[in-house]
Design a protein around this nucleic acid. Structure first.
Length: 571
RNA sequence: UGCUUCGUGGUGUAACUGGCAACACGUCUGACUCUGGAUCAGAAGAGUCCAGGUUCGAGCCCUGGCGAAGCAACCA
């Protein structure tokens, strides 16, 4: 019980950061002594697919606000429809929530845990003449329901006696009637301006094994009949959901009010769902991409699923930071993918080693460097964090450099290699280009010849000589071959799902995946572990893929480095 | 021609409940640099959907418009 001693500030006094509108509501409820100041939330996924970053927004709110106010958050699988749900998804959902960094301790529940109590409540409503069995087809019921602008009419079965209703409902559950032949409806108001209050269906017959209750039941509760009640059973104080459930709230309250026996009552509050540019976020659409093999599974690194983002190389911290920044409102917003990219770069920048990798290699030969000689160059792992130390990288007469780091006839602002030009090889020497060889028929550049200046070795006497460019390199005899997968946005349109009259798949980006083979990596990357992350110097952040084999790594590009040069050449 | 909710720089959010519209991303400069990265410094960019009203003062309050989204699954 907190009266208004000194906790009555409504403003942003809580842990320094300002509260979003939902947290303000919670704060008020606490100040008003509602539910004895208790805060208890829940995250209620339906186990019918993989979690995506939109779910992460909900997870962060559900777990985050509980944590913020010293409360608890339950995990509850909303498994009221046995035709869609599978145990496989339960596992992946648990894994993804844990990966994000949240924990529900021993509070893992299933809506199906409450089937008995829900059934009893339905019987109770029948007894109170607040529910009835309707024998009509779904088409007939829909017809009588009216439209948003035209009110509904009452079912001919609405006045059925409670004895008959009791009997029929019991026999529905005993399997006596076929699917679709009868439903149980709440008796509310067919003339309500809110469609959801027009005698909503609360139980339907489904003769299908449930992933947890098997064949015990032949009737299953609808979402609206399960959700608020489950909240009530679990002692949830704040039931947070997305905006489209706004119109369900009166029904939520109506049911809970007929169930509850005390002052306590859970409160539903709605917030805007996450939309991201250049992708789609609905489970149905993501499923379509998977089923039509337009992507390689739910964890394809181009997918906005948590498993996809994880495989792409996103860290959970970066996702949580992103979500912290976009906030929660009641306005349907579309967030810039660039902000998510910024969040990963920011996180990886401080965490990850810089290594040498050449994606499109061309051979560079240092003609005045002794044949057979190998020097171990000492390279700083991360200039942002000295404690990450240094490592040795072998340097020799023949190297690989990036093909586009050389131009025969470079434009003014090109700082890289060209005839007679000098560049620094990062961590090694300054070299000067003395010539190059092209294939006579194709005109393709084959080899570049340079001379090095031994005095310019990093740390050496002439090391401070200024040259315009610095290139990354890999020693040819030591190089590890790798496959590298470059990803681009999955769709070309900012809002592929938002275009009426167009199928979202019309906007798929044909170049969203670019697989490179024969990439050359420095030898320290020969045996990376799946999910190991690096910055490939000058290129971007990369993450080892699960397809990696011993000595033959496969990397995914998480995100390129910010690149002002590519903007210059576009002009 | 109904109900519910929402309209703040290009994008996403703030504005201590009436006091000079702030922050982040993005964009553009410049400095620095052995990553054209990172970092640092700076700039441009909205006068808060429109019109009235209350007030010394309105993004916040009132009235009326306009616009957008959700709602007619035996899905969640």
């Amino acid at each position: 019980m907190n009266d208004n001693t000194d906790t009555s500030d409504t403003g942003n006094n809580n842990s320094g950061t300002s509260l979003n509108f939902i947290e303000q509501f919670i704060q008020e409820d606490i100040s008003n002594g509602k539910n004895n100041g208790r805060v208890h939330t829940r995250f209620p996924p339906e186990p019918n697919g993989y979690l995506h970053i939109g779910h992460a927004k909900a997870i962060c709110l559900d777990f985050g606000s509980a944590e913020k106010f010293g409360g608890k958050c339950n995990l509850r699988f909303d498994d009221t429809n046995p035709t869609k749900e599978e145990t496989e998804y339960v596992e992946s959902i648990r894994e993804d929530i844990h990966w994000l960094g949240f924990d529900w301790e021993d509070r893992e529940f299933f809506a199906s845990d409450y089937f008995d109590r829900l059934y009893d409540f339905a019987v109770d409503l029948i007894n109170r003449e607040l529910a009835y069995v309707d024998d009509q087809t779904s088409e007939q019921i829909a017809g009588q329901k009216g439209t948003p602008t035209r009110q509904g009419e009452e079912s001919p079965f609405r006045k059925r006696s409670k004895e008959e209703n009791l009997d029929l409902f019991r026999r529905m559950n005993e399997g006596e009637f076929p699917e679709g032949s009868r439903v149980l409806r709440a008796k509310i108001d067919m003339s309500s301006p809110n469609m959801h209050m027009r005698d909503p269906v609360i139980y339907r017959i489904i003769k299908r094994a449930h992933h947890r209750t098997g064949n015990k039941w032949n009737v299953y509760p609808m979402y609206d009949f399960a959700h608020g009640q489950s909240d009530y059973f679990e002692g949830i104080t704040h039931s947070l959901c997305t905006l489209e459930f706004e119109v369900h709230r009166p029904l939520y309250d109506w049911l809970v009010d007929r169930l509850r026996t005390d002052e306590y009552r859970p409160r539903q509050i709605e917030f805007n769902r996450l939309n991201l540019t250049y992708t789609v976020m609905s489970k149905r659409k993501l499923q379509e991409l998977v089923e039509e093999k337009l992507v390689n599974g739910w964890d394809d690194p181009r997918m906005p699923t948590l498993s996809g983002l994880r495989r792409r190389g996103y860290t959970s911290e970066s996702i949580r930071n992103f979500i912290k920044r976009i906030g929660y409102t009641k306005f349907e917003a579309i967030n810039d993918f660039a902000l998510l990219e910024h969040a990963v770069r920011e996180d990886l920048n401080i965490k990850v080693s810089r290594v040498f990798a050449v994606l499109d290699p061309v051979r560079l030969i240092i003609t005045n460097y002794p044949e057979g000689m190998v020097e171990e160059m000492e390279i700083i792992n991360n200039p942002e964090d000295e404690s990450m130390g240094k490592r040795k990288v072998p340097f020799s007469r023949e190297l690989f450099i990036e093909r586009d780091d050389f131009m025969e006839d470079p434009p003014k602002k090109f700082f890289r290699l060209g005839p007679d030009r000098e560049v620094r090889l990062k961590g090694a020497y300054i070299v000067k280009c003395t010539g190059y060889k092209k294939d006579e028929t194709t005109g393709r550049l084959e080899e570049i010849y340079c001379e090095y200046d031994p005095e310019t070795r990093s740390g050496g006497p002439a090391a401070n000589r200024k040259v315009k460019g610095t290139l990354h390199w890999v020693s040819a005899p030591h190089a590890v071959d790798a496959e590298v997968r470059l990803y681009d946005r999955l769709f070309n349109d900012e809002d592929p799902a938002g275009r009426k009259d167009h199928d979202f798949k019309e906007f798929l980006n044909p170049d969203s995946l670019n697989v490179l083979n024969g990439c050359k990596l420095e030898p320290s990357l020969a045996d990376v572990k799946v999910l190991d992350k690096f910055q490939f110097q000058r290129l971007g952040y990369f993450c080892a893929d699960k397809d990696s084999k011993q000595g033959k790594p496969v990397f995914n590009r998480t995100v390129p480095l910010r690149d002002t040069w590519s903007k210059v050449i576009k002009k």
